[in-house]
Design a protein around this nucleic acid. Structure first.
Lengths: 129, 129
DNA sequence: ATTTATGCAAATCATTTGCACATAG
DNA sequence: CTATGTGCAAATGATTTGCATAAAT
């Protein structure tokens, strides 16, 4: 099952690059503005293909739509609890986190993810504390 | 809007206590075995009411059904990537995590969650490495 | 008696999938 | 040519919600 180069795949990849952590629907809306014939199914399929081929990363957001990230190095994200925006956060990768677990309860621990929560700059200024 | 004591609410709370990090559907199935008339809607509503009143915690599992936890203290979870089970993990709470962020990018950082991933004891023994 | 809760079914939201047609290789 | 990709619509899975009825206070 070799992958082909299609216009739609290019559009999806460049939309993610342009939009910064967009949801699949945001990617779809962005592309559909210029290519009204594209379908949501194609956007979802290409997003998954690009993740599988290592050109994108999927950011799993609890209780919200998944987002997509062009940054491939391992890093963490922060989510604005007001508007839902997701952004990269400069927390250094916690290499020793698993070593800090005194008792894994029989689990084989393989990895971790950290999701920070807060308020983004835009929402901070809208409603100053 | 004061909350009432109902049989269904009691059943939901004790099911979560008994099942350890169940999904809403697991709670429903467990209760329905003894009370076939209960509805999923009621289970969901009571789970949310119990979370709002501080008697349960909701564990947001990325790309999977939410789970419910009777442990109220802040702590982290680990998810088995084979069977999907979620359990508490003894990683000490990382109080200084936010302080380790050199640049928040303008975000007001309020909190964090860590989700560990691995293989649970049962799945470890089913397919030994 | 009044107001919240229940059961049911329909609705919602994000995502996936089956299928006939289009197209990249 | 021939397998992979596309558009469309229907299907899926988790969760919520509108509504008439039931039950707690």
């Amino acid at each position: 099952m070799k992958s082909r180069n299609t216009l739609q795949k290019d559009l999806v990849l460049s939309a993610v690059k342009m939009l910064c952590h967009p949801t699949a629907d945001e990617v779809y809306t962005h592309i559909a503005a210029g290519h009204p014939a594209i379908s949501r199914g194609t956007v979802y399929r290409n997003l998954n293909l690009l993740v599988d081929s290592g050109k994108l990363r999927k950011v799993l957001v609890p209780d919200a739509a998944d987002r997509f990230d062009v940054t491939l190095e391992r890093h963490y994200h922060i989510r604005c609890r007001v508007c839902g925006t997701v952004d990269d956060i400069a927390l250094p990768y916690q290499d020793d986190l698993i070593a800090r677990i005194p008792d894994t309860g029989g689990f084989l621990v393989e990895g971790h993810d950290i999701m920070l929560i807060g308020i983004c700059p835009a929402c901070c200024s809208h409603s100053p504390a």
